[in-house]
């Protein structure tokens, strides 16, 4: 379930307490340091705008299909209200934004999720837009970069949201056949239906320190096996150790890492 405790509050206060070490940090300092605590390295959760700023070249972002709006196929209790609240809170129509952009002067398709929008859950709109992003990358032969953060499929759209997992993964099959690279960047937290579909299918998978990544929620696992989970379980470093992500880099090195990888994989396509 969505929890936004560690998200940077857009608020009035000049200071922010670090969730990692408890240090009180001056907000401006935090912002200039990629929202990472400069004492302990704790990575605060950040929103789509920040990732766009961090990964894409300045002023290169051109968003597409921002106006797609969810339906309510199951007439699920309180879903329209939930959507309305999420829209108000985030200023976004749903939990995924995508568009064209440049990354290290390479034309790319970039997509990013918003955990603040109903826990970044994937319903029809997220599924459709992710599929469109993948298709655009294939049609225009642009590398695809997706920053994924999500609690999984959107329960309120029931089986329809489960099918978005198949929809996005199938499109990635075509992208792979077309030999267009896809860099997946699952960040804190990314679990369940999104991790079990497009977020795990990157040609290269990059994550950030201490990001929670995995299939099942921790409470579900604890209830199932009847014991407490070891520290560090499902964190990015755990995923790295078990061979499930390629590389874990501090946020300040995210873009540089993406560019280095693309400059090799996309070497033949570049006209720098």
């Amino acid at each position: 379930m969505p929890d936004s405790e560690s998200r940077v509050k857009p608020a009035d206060t000049l200071w922010q307490r670090c969730n990692g070490c408890g240090e009180i940090i001056y907000r401006k300092t935090l912002e200039s340091n990629f929202h990472v605590c400069n004492r302990c390295g704790y990575h605060f959760r950040i929103g789509p705008e920040e990732y766009i700023r961090i990964i894409l070249d300045e002023n290169s972002w051109e968003e597409l299909d921002a106006d797609l709006i969810a339906g309510d196929p199951l007439r699920f209790p309180k879903y329209p209200e939930k959507l309305r609240e999420a829209r108000q809170k985030t200023g976004r129509n749903d939990a995924f934004s995508y568009g064209r952009g440049m990354c290290g002067r390479i034309p790319v398709v970039f997509g990013v999720m918003d955990f603040g929008f109903i826990g970044g859950s994937m319903g029809s709109v997220v599924g459709e837009k992710v599929a469109r992003a993948i298709r655009l990358a294939r049609k225009e032969s642009r590398p695809l970069i997706i920053v994924a953060t999500s609690g999984g499929a959107r329960m309120q759209e029931g089986i329809i949201s489960l099918m978005q997992m198949a929809k996005t993964s199938a499109e990635l099959g075509l992208l792979r056949q077309a030999r267009v690279p896809y860099i997946a960047i699952p960040v804190d937290p990314c679990t369940a239906g999104v991790m079990a579909s497009f977020a795990s299918l990157g040609d290269v998978i990059i994550s950030e320190p201490n990001a929670l990544l995995g299939f099942a929620g921790q409470r579900v696992i604890e209830d199932t096996i009847g014991e407490k989970l070891p520290p560090g379980f499902q964190r990015a470093e755990f995923m790295l150790r078990h061979g499930l992500v390629d590389v874990v880099v501090p946020r300040r090195n995210l873009k540089e890492t993406v560019v280095r990888i693309l400059s090799v994989l996309w070497y033949r396509h570049q006209s720098l």
Partner: peptide, 9 residues
């Protein structure tokens, strides 16, 4: 699978 989804343009 691409056709599954309910949304408004």
């Amino acid at each position: 699978f691409n056709s599954i989804g309910v949304f408004q343009t």
